[in-house]
Computed example of a mutant assay.
Amino acid sequence: MYHKILVTVDLNDPASYELALPQAIELAKASAGELHLLTVVPDMGMPLVEGFFPAGYEEQALDAAKKKLDSLARERLPADTPHEQHIALGNITQRVIEAVEETGADLVVMASHDPDFAQNFLVGSHAGKVVRRSPVSVLVVRA
Rank of each mutant, 00 (worst) to 15 (best):
Y2W: 04
Y2M: 03
K4R: 15
I5M: 01
L6A: 00
V7C: 01
V9H: 01
V9I: 12
D10T: 09
L11T: 02
N12F: 08
D13T: 10
D13V: 09
A15S: 13
A15W: 06
S16P: 02
S16A: 02
Y17N: 03
Y17E: 06
Y17M: 11
Y17C: 06
E18W: 07
E18T: 14
E18C: 12
L19G: 08
A20R: 00
A20C: 04
L21A: 07
L21N: 02
L21G: 01
P22G: 02
P22F: 01
P22V: 02
I25K: 00
L27Q: 07
A30Y: 04
A32Y: 09
A32C: 12
G33Y: 09
E34C: 12
L35A: 04
L35W: 03
H36L: 06
H36V: 05
H36N: 06
H36Y: 09
L37Y: 02
T39G: 01
V40H: 10
V41D: 02
V41E: 04
P42W: 05
D43V: 05
D43Q: 01
D43T: 08
M44G: 08
M44T: 14
V49P: 08
F52Y: 14
F53H: 04
F53N: 06
G56C: 09
Y57E: 06
Y57S: 10
Y57A: 12
E58L: 14
A61H: 03
D63E: 12
A64K: 11
A64D: 10
K68S: 07
K68F: 03
D70M: 10
S71R: 15
S71I: 15
L72I: 05
L72P: 12
A73R: 02
R74S: 15
R74Y: 14
E75F: 14
R76K: 14
P78N: 10
P78Y: 12
A79W: 13
A79Q: 15
D80I: 13
T81M: 15
H83Q: 07
H83E: 08
E84C: 11
H86G: 04
I87V: 11
I87F: 02
L89F: 12
L89Y: 10
G90I: 09
N91M: 13
I92E: 15
I92T: 15
I92S: 15
T93V: 15
T93L: 15
Q94W: 10
I97S: 11
E98I: 08
E98D: 14
E98W: 05
A99D: 01
A99C: 05
V100C: 01
V100T: 05
V100I: 12
E101V: 04
E102G: 04
E102F: 02
E102V: 03
T103I: 08
G104Q: 03
A105W: 02
L107V: 04
V108A: 00
V108L: 00
V109W: 00
V109R: 00
V109L: 01
M110K: 02
M110S: 03
M110E: 10
S112K: 14
H113R: 13
D114Y: 10
P115F: 09
P115M: 11
D116W: 05
D116H: 13
D116S: 11
F117P: 15
F117D: 13
Q119P: 07
N120M: 08
L122R: 05
L122S: 02
L122N: 05
L122I: 05
H126G: 08
A127S: 11
G128H: 06
R132F: 12
S134Y: 05
P135H: 06
V136E: 00
S137N: 03
S137W: 00
S137D: 07
L139E: 04
V140M: 09
V140Y: 08
R142H: 13
A143H: 13
